[in-house]
Computed example of a mutant assay.
Amino acid sequence: MFTFEAEQEVYDVNGTKMGGQPGETPTLMVGSIFYKGDKVQENPETGEFDEEAAREAVRNVEELSEKTGNPAAFDTIGDSPEALKKHIEFMADVTDAPIFMDGPTPSIRAEAAKFAGEIGIEDQIIYNSIESSTKQVDEEIEAIQESGINSAVLLSIDTTDMSIDGRRNALDENLEVAEEAGIDQPIVDPGIIDIPDSGYVAKIIHELKNEYGIPMGCAPHNEVIQWEMNDPLVENSRQLRQAVANSVIVHLGADFNIYGPVHGAAEMYEVMSTADAYVAYGAQMGEGRRADTDHPLFKIFR
C-alpha cells in the first residue's frame, strides 16, 4: 500500500465521511436512481414515480451499507426541473445519505439547487456537476451561491486533451468556478469516456489526489454498459469484468464510486467492500494506518 504526499481532505456531508489516505475511509458507494429507464419511474418529465418501490430500493441500499461498512449515497436524477425537485425532496425524506443532485442541463440543476436551499436540504446535497461549461453560465453559479450548497462534483475532463495534464488544467478551472460558487467541499471526477478507461482514470485519480489531496472518484459503470463482448469465456463474463472495472479505482486511491443503478447494489457492495478490506489491510500492515471498526475490513472479515 502507499501514502499520498499531499495532506488529504476528509469531508463530512450530512454525517457521511469521504476522503483521506488509502484504508482510512471506506469508498462512498453512489447508486443512481430515477435515471432514464429506471423501473420506479412513471413519468420522467413530471417526476411521477412509484414511491413504495423507490423507498424499498433505498432501504435495500442502506441495509447493504450497514452490512458491509461502505457508506451510501444516491445519484438522484431528474430530466426536468419539476422532476428533479420532486426526486430530491423525496430522497431527503427517506434517507440521511448524501444526495448527488444530477440533472442533464445547467438550467435544470440551477432551479433544483434553489429549491434545495428553500426547503433546507442544502447540507445533504452534492451538486452534480460543475464542469467546463459552468463558468459560462452565470445563472448556474448564482443558483449554487444562493442555495447554500457547499459540496459539488467537479467533472474535470477536456475532450480535446485526454492526458493527465488535460485533466489537471480542467480541474484548476473547475476549482476556480467552485470557489466562486461557494463550494467548500469539491470532489473530483476525471471522467470515464472509453471502454478500457477505468485503469487510466485510476492512474489519473492517483496522481491528482497525490497532488491536490481532495476526494476523487468516477463512474466505471459508464464504460461497462457500452461493452459489446465477443466470445465471452463464461456466462457471467460481464458481471466479472464489471467487478474489475469498479474495483481497480479503489486500489489506486479513489474515494467514491458511481457504480450504476441502485437495483444492482448488492453485487457492487460485494465487490467494493472486498476491495476496500484489502486496501485497509495493506495500509495497516504496510503503513501502520488502522481503520475504524465499522470499516469493511472488520465487517466482512470476522
Rank of each mutant, 00 (worst) to 15 (best):
residue 144 I to Q: 08
residue 89 E to N: 10
residue 80 S to R: 01
residue 143 A to K: 09
residue 117 G to F: 07
residue 76 T to V: 13
residue 24 E to A: 10
residue 142 E to R: 14
residue 153 V to H: 00
residue 150 N to A: 11
residue 98 P to M: 08
residue 133 S to Q: 14
residue 95 T to S: 14
residue 126 I to G: 00
residue 72 A to H: 07
residue 135 K to R: 15
residue 84 L to I: 10
residue 59 R to G: 09
residue 70 N to M: 07
residue 111 E to R: 05
residue 67 K to V: 02
residue 39 K to I: 09
residue 105 T to R: 05
residue 86 K to L: 00
residue 78 G to V: 01
residue 126 I to Y: 04
residue 122 E to F: 12
residue 76 T to Q: 05
residue 116 A to P: 02
residue 57 A to L: 11
residue 93 D to I: 06
residue 83 A to R: 02
residue 70 N to S: 08
residue 91 M to I: 11
residue 152 A to W: 10
residue 155 L to K: 00
residue 25 T to I: 15
residue 159 T to M: 13
residue 85 K to I: 00
residue 68 T to C: 08
residue 37 G to S: 07
residue 22 P to L: 02
residue 57 A to S: 14
residue 58 V to M: 13
residue 143 A to G: 06
residue 48 E to H: 09
residue 102 D to C: 08
residue 22 P to G: 10
residue 65 S to A: 14
residue 101 M to L: 13
residue 41 Q to G: 09
residue 150 N to M: 05
residue 85 K to H: 01
residue 143 A to V: 08
residue 106 P to V: 02
residue 123 D to A: 09
residue 91 M to Q: 00
residue 108 I to W: 06
residue 84 L to G: 07
residue 41 Q to T: 13
residue 127 Y to R: 06
residue 125 I to K: 01
residue 150 N to T: 15
residue 80 S to H: 00
residue 90 F to L: 12
residue 22 P to Y: 05
residue 110 A to N: 01
residue 126 I to R: 07
residue 124 Q to W: 05
residue 106 P to A: 05
residue 81 P to C: 01
residue 152 A to T: 13
residue 78 G to F: 00
residue 103 G to E: 00
residue 158 D to M: 08
residue 137 V to P: 01
residue 49 F to I: 15
residue 62 E to M: 15
residue 108 I to T: 14
residue 150 N to P: 03
residue 66 E to L: 13
residue 106 P to S: 10
residue 133 S to L: 13
residue 119 I to N: 10
residue 39 K to H: 08
residue 36 K to W: 03
residue 91 M to C: 01
residue 64 L to H: 15
residue 43 N to W: 03
residue 129 S to K: 02
residue 149 I to K: 06
residue 112 A to L: 03
residue 53 A to T: 12
residue 154 L to H: 06
residue 61 V to A: 14
residue 68 T to W: 11
residue 135 K to M: 09
residue 111 E to C: 01
residue 147 S to C: 07
residue 153 V to T: 10
residue 118 E to L: 05
residue 79 D to Q: 10
residue 139 E to I: 06
residue 38 D to Q: 11
residue 154 L to F: 02
residue 136 Q to K: 15
residue 50 D to T: 07
residue 100 F to D: 13
residue 38 D to A: 14
residue 64 L to S: 06
residue 85 K to N: 03
residue 61 V to Y: 08
residue 149 I to D: 07
residue 31 G to E: 05
residue 52 E to S: 11
residue 50 D to H: 12
residue 115 F to Y: 15
residue 53 A to S: 12
residue 39 K to E: 12
residue 65 S to M: 06
residue 73 A to Y: 07
residue 23 G to N: 00
residue 40 V to E: 01
residue 16 T to L: 14
residue 46 T to F: 03
residue 129 S to H: 07
residue 120 G to N: 10
residue 84 L to N: 11
residue 52 E to W: 05
residue 151 S to L: 06
residue 116 A to Y: 04
residue 86 K to N: 14
residue 15 G to A: 05
residue 159 T to A: 10
residue 91 M to V: 03
residue 79 D to R: 01
residue 73 A to S: 15
residue 17 K to I: 02
residue 128 N to L: 08
residue 117 G to Q: 11
residue 137 V to N: 14
residue 24 E to C: 04
residue 65 S to N: 09
residue 151 S to E: 01
residue 28 L to Y: 03
residue 136 Q to H: 13
residue 105 T to L: 05
residue 81 P to Q: 00
residue 145 Q to E: 12
